[in-house]
Deep mutational scan, measured.
Amino acid sequence: MSIQHFRVALIPFFAAFCLPVFAHPETLVKVKDAEDQLGARVGYIELDLNSGKILESFRPEERFPMMSTFKVLLCGAVLSRVDAGQEQLGRRIHYSQNDLVKYSPVTEKHLTDGMTVRELCSAAITMSDNTAANLLLTTIGGPKELTAFLHNMGDHVTRLDRWEPELNEAIPNDERDTTMPAAMATTLRKLLTGELLTLASRQQLIDWMEADKVAGPLLRSALPAGWFIADKSGASERGSRGIIAALGPDGKPSRIVVIYTTGSQATMDERNRQIAEIGASLIKHW
């Protein structure tokens, strides 16, 4: 058993032996400061991975655009179909130039040979490839079927209504393609630790998130040596930015963190910096 498999397999085991986890309101002070700095709403939640207890939250039940963070949920739905014998990670999917949409750094290189379902999930999560996400959405029946999958998990909040890139429109008060921090954190925890997916599929999902290559300026920039993080970021119109993550010290995840912001006029660099500073406060007061 690899170190990674050891880590995921023991998450339920550690729940019975973990020390009490204490919240630190200092992080919420930073979240509120980020709102002031960005001139935008910020949603935040910090969840204990083992118990599911909410440690801190700010606007946990307000809607925010999901942006590309939905791609983790999408690959969770794909893995659920794999577990049920309805899909194979090794199945190759062929597509054409007409299928390519904006920001497809991986799929645009494989027009001649296509990509496997496994490769598409990797591209969608680690590189946020939009065509990969659309191709995967097609395999499960489209955005409405992803919403149905989430409903069956008990998440009646999170919804996907459109495809890439239209889902990134982020119109104020538009509930399409949105979630709430509390709903996203709970759903992510179920995917990573619950019985919905097999152990192998849970491991695969967290491996893809751990290999994320496009979230460096966010929480990863504040991470001390030896800490673990598996994450997925997102960005969209109207100053929207977000990240969902499982992270913790000693090389294993122990908390879920979800951060969303929307409605800012700030630059992408400034949005990144504010999220990184929230992460730094979280780690300092861990």
Rank of each mutant, 00 (worst) to 15 (best):
M1I: 08
F6S: 09
F6G: 08
F6D: 06
R7Q: 13
V8I: 15
A9P: 13
A9D: 06
A9K: 12
I11G: 09
I11Y: 12
I11V: 14
P12I: 14
F13Y: 12
F14S: 07
F14L: 12
A15V: 15
F17V: 13
F17Y: 14
C18F: 06
L19R: 06
L19S: 13
L19C: 15
F22L: 15
F22S: 15
V29M: 13
K30N: 06
E35A: 02
L38F: 06
L38K: 04
L38P: 05
G39S: 10
R41M: 09
V42M: 10
G43A: 04
Y44K: 00
Y44H: 01
Y44N: 00
N50C: 12
N50R: 15
N50V: 14
N50H: 14
N50T: 14
G52A: 05
I54N: 04
L55F: 09
L55A: 02
L55S: 02
E56G: 08
R59L: 01
R59S: 12
P60Y: 05
P60Q: 14
E61A: 14
E61R: 14
E62G: 03
R63S: 04
F64V: 03
P65F: 02
P65A: 07
M66L: 14
S68T: 00
T69I: 02
V72C: 04
L73Q: 02
L74I: 04
L74T: 03
A77V: 10
L79A: 01
L79I: 02
L79S: 01
S80W: 15
V82D: 03
D83T: 02
G85D: 10
G85V: 04
G85E: 10
Q86R: 14
E87K: 00
Q88I: 11
Q88S: 15
Q88D: 15
L89A: 05
L89D: 03
G90Y: 12
G90V: 10
G90R: 09
R91M: 04
I93A: 01
I93L: 12
I93F: 04
H94L: 14
H94Q: 13
H94T: 15
S96N: 14
S96D: 14
Q97I: 13
N98G: 12
D99H: 11
V101I: 10
Y103D: 08
P105T: 06
T107V: 06
E108A: 11
E108D: 10
E108R: 15
K109R: 12
L111T: 11
D113Q: 13
T116A: 06
V117G: 00
A123G: 05
I125D: 01
M127K: 07
D129E: 00
A133P: 00
N134S: 02
N134V: 01
L135K: 03
L135F: 04
L136V: 05
L137M: 10
L137W: 01
G142E: 02
G142R: 01
P143V: 03
P143T: 04
K144T: 13
E145R: 11
E145T: 10
F149V: 06
F149Y: 14
L150W: 07
N152I: 11
M153L: 11
M153V: 10
M153I: 13
T158S: 11
R159V: 14
R159T: 06
D161A: 04
D161H: 03
D161N: 03
R162H: 08
W163P: 05
W163T: 07
W163E: 07
W163F: 14
E164A: 00
P165L: 07
P165H: 03
P165V: 09
E166R: 07
E166S: 12
E166L: 08
L167S: 05
L167P: 02
N168H: 04
N168E: 05
N168D: 07
A170E: 15
I171L: 15
I171T: 14
P172H: 09
P172N: 09
N173L: 12
N173D: 14
N173M: 13
N173I: 08
D174L: 03
D174A: 03
E175D: 13
R176P: 04
T178N: 02
T178F: 01
T178A: 02
T178M: 02
T178E: 01
T178R: 01
T179V: 01
T179M: 00
T179S: 06
P181Q: 00
A182G: 14
A183Y: 07
A183G: 05
A183K: 06
A183T: 09
T186L: 15
T186A: 14
T187R: 00
T187I: 03
R189A: 11
R189G: 07
L191I: 10
E195K: 11
L196R: 15
L197V: 03
T198E: 11
T198A: 10
L199Q: 15
S201F: 08
R202I: 03
Q203H: 10
Q203L: 08
I206Q: 12
D207V: 11
W208Y: 04
D212G: 05
K213I: 08
K213L: 11
K213V: 09
K213Y: 07
V214E: 04
A215I: 01
A215V: 02
A215E: 05
A215Q: 03
G216W: 07
G216A: 10
G216L: 05
P217T: 09
P217Q: 11
L218Q: 02
L218S: 03
L219W: 02
L219H: 01
L219R: 01
R220A: 01
A222S: 13
A222I: 15
L223N: 01
P224N: 01
P224Y: 01
G226E: 06
W227C: 09
F228C: 03
F228I: 04
F228T: 03
D231G: 03
A235G: 11
A235D: 03
A235C: 03
E237D: 12
R238L: 11
G239A: 03
G239W: 02
G239L: 02
S240P: 03
S240Y: 07
S240W: 01
R241E: 02
G242D: 00
I243R: 00
I244V: 14
I244N: 00
A245V: 01
A245T: 01
A245C: 07
A245L: 01
A246T: 07
A246P: 00
A246I: 12
L247H: 00
L247A: 01
P249T: 03
P249E: 03
D250C: 13
G251P: 04
G251C: 07
G251L: 08
K252E: 12
P253F: 06
P253C: 06
P253S: 05
S254Y: 06
S254V: 10
R255A: 01
S264G: 15
A266W: 02
A266P: 03
M268N: 06
M268Q: 08
M268G: 06
M268H: 07
M268S: 07
M268P: 08
D269A: 12
D269K: 12
D269R: 09
D269T: 13
D269Y: 09
E270D: 09
R271H: 13
R271L: 15
Q274R: 10
I275F: 11
A276E: 08
E277A: 10
E277K: 08
E277S: 10
G279A: 12
L282G: 01
L282M: 15
I283H: 01
I283R: 02
K284N: 10
K284T: 11
H285E: 04
